[in-house]
């Protein structure tokens, strides 16, 4: 199907590349169906684009590129909501906020987006007990 996107104009999206958030991401209650657009696969970024509303498009990053030691456990409840994924069928992204310049961009490591690719379900998970922040600098300040 062809969809209108915020950043890339009209894009042809396959139905198997659409994921459903159940429940919705926080503050985005009206939008459930998204697709990941990676116009440049060499970049650790993607656009999480609503297939229903062109203007709803979130910048997401591969957290492991920026923090190699990023790790968390999924609770039994999360696994059930994600339809019992095998580890290799999980994809993790985090939202990125770039208010002024990209150099000061932050990522939300406290609430990662977890996608079970085989079942096309996704959830934004809140890591209650993890030592992560919603505003973690993408690039830590360089020393010196």
């Amino acid at each position: 199907m062809k969809i209108q996107t915020a950043m890339l104009g009209e894009v042809d999206v396959q139905e198997q590349d659409v994921v459903t958030f159940e429940p919705a991401m926080y503050g985005l209650d009206e939008y459930r169906r998204f697709t990941l657009l990676r116009p440049d696969e060499t970049l650790p970024f993607a656009y999480l684009q609503s297939v229903e509303e062109a203007g709803v498009c979130l910048l997401v990053a591969d957290p492991f590129v920026f923090r190699a030691d990023y790790a968390f456990d999924l609770s039994e409840a999360d696994l059930a909501d994600l339809k019992q994924p095998a580890a290799e069928d999980l994809v993790i992204w985090v939202t990125v906020t770039a208010p002024d310049t990209l150099e000061t961009a932050t990522m939300n490591l406290l609430a990662p987006i977890v996608i079970h690719t085989k079942q096309q379900v996704a959830r934004q998970i809140v890591l209650h007990e993890a030592p992560y922040a919603t505003k973690t600098p993408l690039f830590p300040p360089k020393e010196g």
């Binding site: 926080y26 979130l58 906020t97 770039a98 208010p99 932050t106 939300n108 919603t134």
Partner: peptide
Amino acid sequence: ANQGALQTP
């Protein structure tokens, strides 16, 4: 943070 991510570069 989600609202912030909507301002996509």
